[in-house]
């Protein structure tokens, strides 16, 4: 039949000649290949001691961000949960009381914010949906665990730790 792609290769099986039939040259060739690999540089990264840097656009574990005064940005609007294709996000909102202004930026905040990491597909749509720039998938891998219930991450794991904010230009002394 006419080959349409013109890339057809006819495989020719010749009877083996003497050197091929006694196997030995082929065996030595194989041995030389394996011994070459024996001395090759090994590309393994020894993981727990050495970590490969994540790529810039890697989407890992979520973190709930704080603003420059260390207050939680999230206002529990629910847009992230709405946008989530895997329905991994759930939250319970609460009203900010007097005296809590240093904790929450908005008048409403998420009292409970849970992401089921078994459902999450790390698509990043919550990140895009958030009007307050409160959620980012900038963490590392979500690690393995033994129980399903341990994969439901609450605020204790999601909210980023407080940090000392330093204005640009100021020197840290």
């Amino acid at each position: 039949m006419q080959s349409l792609s013109n890339r057809k290769k006819v495989l020719e099986q010749k009877p083996m000649n003497f050197w091929e039939r006694i196997y030995l040259p082929a065996i030595f060739q194989g041995l030389s290949i394996t011994i070459k690999h024996f001395f090759k540089r090994i590309p393994t990264v020894r993981y727990p001691e050495v970590k490969r840097p994540y790529s810039k656009n890697f989407r890992g574990q979520h973190s709930l961000k704080r603003d420059e005064q260390g207050r939680e940005r999230c206002t529990a609007c629910g847009l992230c949960a709405l946008s989530c294709p895997a329905e991994a996000i759930s939250m319970i909102s609460a009203e900010r009381q007097k005296g809590e202004e240093h904790l929450y930026r908005e008048e409403k905040y998420a009292a409970v914010y849970e992401i089921n990491m078994l459902r999450c597909i790390f698509c990043g749509l919550c990140e895009e949906a958030c009007p307050k720039e409160a959620i980012y998938l900038d963490g590392e891998h979500v690690t393995a665990d033994y129980l399903r219930k341990d994969f439901i991450y609450g605020k204790d794991k999601l909210v980023e730790p407080r940090f000392d904010f330093v204005k640009e230009g100021e020197t840290t002394t």
């Binding site: 011994i35 690999h37 024996f38 590309p43 393994t44």
Partner: peptide
């Protein structure tokens, strides 16, 4: 070990 080194791993 030999298997590892010949297959480019440790």
């Amino acid at each position: 070990k030999v298997a590892g080194f010949m297959q480019d791993r440790f």
